[in-house]
Design a protein around this nucleic acid. Structure first.
Length: 157
DNA sequence: GCCAACGTTGGC
DNA sequence: GCCAACGTTGGC
């Protein structure tokens, strides 16, 4: 019985819209999530499975908030940008024989007509346990199904 | 642009 | 293994 097949996990991934926005993903359909250089965030990506849902969060935006939805379309594999000396994500401590950093591919799902702002999330009692709210600069974080559903509902979906 | 919070590095 | 110094994130 492959019961794990029936489980779906939920995540929140941060991106600065000036660097890569949900609109960029809408245009490109899929993208690789390179450049994560934090172990906790990396470990979360390693746990991702194809089909998992992703809240696409715009950080350093005016205002910051969840701007849309994505899904995991390819599970963790080595982040080759770490091997490229010309990349801003280069890391001399990561090698092809022993890659330190991983990335996943995500696919476009939806742009929220009205993003769900961080201020609104913080003002919602049902979302007070979100990792996002309890500080943490963690750029790839787990979200519960109820948190995910609530944010979709707040976005009018 | 400021700065608080947090993660990483490296000397000891 | 501690912890000070430093760098980065990201809201405001």
């Amino acid at each position: 019985m492959r019961t794990e097949f029936f489980y779906m996990n939920y995540w929140l991934m941060k991106s600065e819209p000036d660097v890569y926005s949900i609109q960029d993903l809408q245009r490109e359909k899929t993208t690789c999530w390179e450049g994560v250089r934090n172990y906790q965030a990396r470990n979360n990506m390693i746990k991702m499975r194809v089909g998992d849902r992703v809240l696409f969060y715009h950080s350093n935006a005016k205002p910051p908030g969840v701007a849309g939805l994505a899904t995991v379309v390819k599970e963790a594999y080595p982040d080759h940008f770490a091997f490229n000396e010309d990349s801003k994500y280069f890391d001399a401590k990561s090698s092809k024989d022993n890659p330190r950093w991983q990335m996943v591919d995500v696919g476009f799902e939806a742009v929220f007509p009205h993003p769900v702002g961080l201020n609104t999330i913080k003002a919602t009692a049902a979302l007070k346990s979100m990792v996002l709210v309890n500080s943490s600069r963690l750029s790839v974080q787990p979200v519960t199904k109820s948190e995910y559903d609530r944010i979709c509902k707040m976005a009018g979906r």
